[in-house]
Amino acid sequence: MEMGELKGARGIVALVALVIIFAGVLFSFLQLNGNVARGISPEYNRLAYLEAPNNLASWVYDLRGFDTFIETGVIYVGAVVSVLALGRGIVKVKGPREEEPVPQTSFDFKPDTVPIILKYFGLPAIMLIVSYGLLIVTGAATSGGGGFQCGVIISSAYLLGMAIYGKSNPLNLGKKFLIGLGSIGWATYGLCGLPGYLATHYWQYNVGADLWSSYPGFPGAVPEILRTVFGDPFRLALVLKEGTFYSSAGIVPIINLGEAFNVIGALGLIFLVFAYGWSDRKEGET
């Protein structure tokens, strides 16, 4: 069907249909106004501070941490599939002769035409951006921030480097390295669930923060060693007039590192392959 066909009777029908849909959706939103139930969310608010001063980190990476694990997978798969569309991992059945893969052309980056002044300012800018990304990921549990943001920031530094200096830029990340980084990131996130699983059979139970093992009725127990290994490196002290209070974000900072690796790997790979195309040859070979 061509777009031109939408001008006739079909167009009018589609228009009427869209008006009905909009009316329905608007009507329902108006009805919802003032009738929103809070449900379970106050309970999350009550619990989140026990782990990390940044409540968001507690929600996203611990209380609903497994959701975020699969979300991370969406980013990973997004990168794998985008790169697959450009040629990495296209498969062929051995026997029958089939159509050749669609040839891919790369974008035309011309770093030679970049003004020299940009080249002077590019390197410090990239260094600053990368340090900012590292700051964000290390402060995931204590301040606003996290692995995803760090990944986006660092991969944007990588894109800046590619735009100014071309393929051999200061952040000279190869395709194998990026694939490995993404895979290690997601696998780290996944394996962070293992200690809690082994101790309590709850996957991704936060053994470092260990909020529940002393509660009556909790199945399983967390050994002291796990609490020390995963809890102590990230323990925070809140010094108040009433006394000093301790909390630990436990596995949340490690998860954030994994998330950051995953996002750097995924986005970097997309940038690299969309700019220069994919070939199964080793780097350096022509």
């Binding site: 609903r64 497994f66 959701d67 699969i70 979300e71 997978g73 969406v74 798969v77 997004g78 794998v80 599939v81 697959l84 569309a85 991992g89 296209i90 498969v91 062929k92 089939e98 159509e99 893969p101 669609v102």
Partner: peptide, 23 residues
């Protein structure tokens, strides 16, 4: 919420598996 993530994840994978035959 997880159902939604699962559906998004699944539809991306369907596209990947199909695109892999390269035609």
């Amino acid at each position: 919420y997880h159902l939604w993530i699962g559906v998004e994840f699944g539809s991306l994978l369907v596209a990947g598996v199909v695109a892999a035959s390269g035609e």
